[in-house]
Design a protein around this nucleic acid. Structure first.
Lengths: 198, 198
DNA sequence: CTGTACATATATCGGACCGATATATGCGGT
DNA sequence: ACCGCATATATCGGTCCGATATATGTACAG
């Protein structure tokens, strides 16, 4: 996730570590505050791997400031990271937010594909919550129940939000099609439970 | 967080590791799937620290099954963990869900205090998002903007949900007061930005 | 009865990211 | 001249993760 965020920001313009942390704090402020304990080691690792490169060092005397820029290799890796489904589902929500923030770098079809994959993920979560609600409705106390029910509501409204984004993206694609003179129609199944893995 | 969850579940009844993982998967299913790589080492650590104790081991031959129960010490630690504000703000949302699921073990006043602390946390997040929106409204593209705006909406609706829980809890407290013959009124400030740390 | 697929149960591994903290330098105010 | 704060980089121990290994019980098809 951090790797994706770093490459995405450096793609816009070269920066040093501290600057990266402020940029991230800005756009994802309330949701993800990157730790220096992750940032600087990761930057060095990315340099070692050739995905970023030093653009300028600070002066030999006085305050140092290591500015990094993205490399050709880094650009490739960035686009891969942007599309991949990572193993770590624990911080999947945060990861999706980061991915979405860089969606402008993806072609419309890929955007729709990723939005639908996310929709499938949330649909699965909704089913899992419903299963729990069915089986534990009686046993659970007020607060444990409130947790589940709020989770359900929040997930549902997230799905609706995603549907809006998908509709919007399709509309844009459609318009682009018309402008080119073609009146092609689109048939793309909206994935539901368990289908998004196929 | 895991420590809190384990102690809370063992407080209800003794269990072995695998059983704990299923229980957790049930109530917080879509949001937190505990990893064995955390669970078993943590169980052993808690045993070492005397917060849990083996209730029964499996047979010497055949399949083993190590059932743990909570100790007196563990009960104390549990109530502390339930109320403490941990350093880790990164997974604060998940942590609050876990805490809330065990709210029945706290007295009403403490519940209200924790709900208001959470409210303050979310109010701060909302302010952070608003700051970002103000300063980056122009620069940001559609999707980066959508991330922030959706974050804002979701945070707002979380706050409203919390307000409902707080109102509810106060009403219950009030009723209890009346039943005891006293008609005491409550004056408790709802914390807003930056005040929750004081 | 025998295979065999699946749930149960415990354990270990490397890795990602965290918060706290240390250590400097530059800068605005007093 | 001094202080406090933002800037800038670095390292530490710790939590939790997913993948994987290794068994045992159990249901069920051939």
């Amino acid at each position: 996730m951090l790797e994706l965020a770093i490459l995405g920001l450096l793609k816009q313009q070269p920066m040093h570590g501290y600057q990266l942390s402020r940029e991230l704090g800005g756009s994802l402020g309330g949701f993800w505050r990157v730790s220096y304990g992750s940032l600087y080691p990761t930057l060095r690792r990315l340099e070692r791997e050739g995905l970023v490169a030093r653009v300028s060092d600070g002066p030999s005397g006085g305050r140092r400031k290591t500015v990094y820029g993205i490399t050709e290799q880094g650009e490739v890796a960035f686009l891969e990271l942007l599309q991949e489904t990572p193993a770590d589902t624990s911080s999947e929500d945060a990861r999706f937010r980061v991915r979405l923030a860089f969606f402008r770098y993806l072609p419309p079809e890929t955007r729709i594909r990723l939005l639908e994959r996310r929709r499938g993920f949330l649909a699965d979560r909704l089913d899992a919550i419903d299963d729990s609600l069915r089986s534990e409705r009686e046993a659970a106390d007020d607060y444990a129940l409130a947790v589940m029910e709020h989770g359900r509501t929040a997930t549902e409204s997230d799905i609706e939000w995603l549907d809006g984004l998908i509709t919007n993206e399709r509309a844009k694609t459609e318009r682009r099609g018309l402008e080119r003179g073609g009146a092609r129609t689109h048939r793309t199944a909206v994935l539901s439970r368990k289908e998004h893995t196929s």
